[in-house]
Design a protein around this nucleic acid. Structure first.
Lengths: 189, 189, 189, 189
DNA sequence: TATGAATGAGCCTTCATTCAT
DNA sequence: GATGAATGAAGGCTCATTCAT
């Protein structure tokens, strides 16, 4: 194969799934290689180290999520609807790719400090949107960083429980309840 | 010392702190031993393996939290106040011992499956309390497991952000906001 | 065994011999371990890395040679006799421990730059002795560093040939010839 | 390019320089390839293996030096002058191409055993010349192999020191001193 | 109970070599 | 002849665990 892109994509996908399943440290380069159907050394043609693989994977996926939310935040809709859209999108994403979410979740401890200051992250987008809503008097007052954290918690914690098997229904069926809860937190009536 | 209890306590405390700081896999038995001022082999007089240390540490601390919440839930107060008390207690705990919370947080991914069915956990206590509140018509209807997850998220996610340095104020100052948000989620007016 | 000194000595000796025989890079930590009859990991209880092992081994042996020569240089004899004594000592050393010499020889490229400025090395002792002999008019004039190099060459190069099998007689039988040649270089009649 | 000669020459030159600088084992085929501005695989169009590259490089360069000396030895001059000419030539060579000398020096340990018996090497030429001089009573008696080694040492060791930075003057300025020292070793008055 | 030297399986990584293009 | 992605054996090193003292 002249072009190594397919190989790199395979590495990325397999690595993410294994990291999600067993944790980063617990996943060996051998695991990744055999999962991707390649030799162990091949990983190192695409990444300088396992560490770089983890870092780049996290950062690119994390930013991707930020971009999705930013697009929603940029729409013409009112804050209440934007929150609903974001949550709907999150539920769908999670239902479609639980591994992605799990990877992001358990890699953050250790990687979050690597996030460049100017990166568009889900948290920043949410916080800005809340601040905006407060500006026009629709969202109740309070530290927007704290409120963003709380809204995120409302959405993420059930997902965590889902990952751990404590909640088993299709995640999309939670969309309505999660949305209402988020509204409750923000004082959106 | 004839009695090894002091040694064991030192191991427990140091281990928890190191686990919280660097992660479980990243913490070596050597780290723990030198942190506790003992020889490496001594750990194995108190625990069969590092794995057992992690497991027992997690379960005992996790259960301890459950017991605290259970005591609050058993009081005579009404659900709304109980929620407030629980959150106040969580905020205080977190402010006093961030390492404990961090340890519990990032160890759950591997240990939650080890929790015996009959153990009193924070989640179970919260869920039962919500169900009870729904029974007497004070808390709004909905899957109590999901609602417990959401309330937990409201409280835990800001703590996570605090651990990651994204929120820096004294955690106890959030108590009021967190309580109101939890009420909002549960439809407690 | 309570005391790891014997193990460390074994490592040192075996490492030196293998390094001399096959080169440093070509000698694996596994080679050393199995040669010393220990586990691979044991090496790392005594040295932080293979690199440190090489460095410390070289430096300590190199300095030891310097000390021997320094003792000879400190004697009451005249320069001509001192040269003879040094060469006699070198011949004996080489005859007794070819591996030591070979190790020193082929490790210098790479380690010589690690020698601290204040270390007593064979070269420095020789150079100072030559300078002294020049001072009292017994040794002919010229850059003492260059002359030290030449005298060293006279003694060392035959040893190198011996190592490579190009000279096969007992090295001590060369003592007289080497001494006269060294005198010739220094103009000692 | 139809003809790969230019590529091969580039490989040879770059390899020699890198080998001299960092050692053979420490130099990777990747280093050589990127230094020569070619792809890694291309080396294998010209050499069966890295090992073969080292071997052929060493032997051809080593023999080349032997040929130079042989030409000098074949002249009409007297032994004393021949020695002077050889040393002058060595000094010039070293001054012009330190890498070549260094490569030859530190590769000998592994390659000398590969030298065919009938090859004209610097050592053999020197030895024969000494024997001849002894035959006509100009050079003092003694094992010619040993004497060749000593003369070589006089010339080579200062060069080694130069490589290691212990001697820093222009090497050609040593010519006269080296020559006199060699004469001293051989008893040429 | 406590020690700490020793173990050895296994991890991450390097690198000479191959081969389809 | 040249390329460069892929290979896989092997190397240095770590670390949970054991055991004689």
């Amino acid at each position: 194969m002249r072009d190594g892109t397919a190989t790199k994509n395979k590495i990325n996908r397999v690595a993410m799934e294994l990291f999600a399943e067993q944790g980063v440290t617990e996943t060996t380069t051998k695991d990744i290689a055999s999962g991707a159907g390649i030799a162990e050394g091949t990983i190192y043609r695409h990444y300088k180290s396992k560490d770089e693989l983890v870092k780049k994977l996290f950062l690119s996926l994390y930013e991707e999520q930020g971009n999705y939310l930013r697009d929603i935040a940029a729409s013409e809709k009112d804050p209440k609807q934007k929150i609903a859209d974001m949550i709907a999108r999150f539920c769908q994403l999670f239902a479609e790719d639980k591994a992605l979410f799990t990877f992001l979740l358990l890699t953050q401890h250790g990687q979050l400090k690597e996030v460049p200051d100017d990166m568009v992250t889900p948290v920043v987008v949410l916080r800005d949107m809340i601040a905006q809503g407060q500006g026009i008097g629709i969202i109740k007052q309070g530290d927007p960083d704290l409120m963003a954290a709380m809204v995120l918690g409302v959405v993420v914690q059930p997902a965590v429980f889902h990952v751990y098997g404590r909640l088993t229904q299709d995640y999309k069926s939670f969309t309505q309840d999660l949305t209402e809860a988020a509204w409750g937190v923000l004082g959106l009536t």
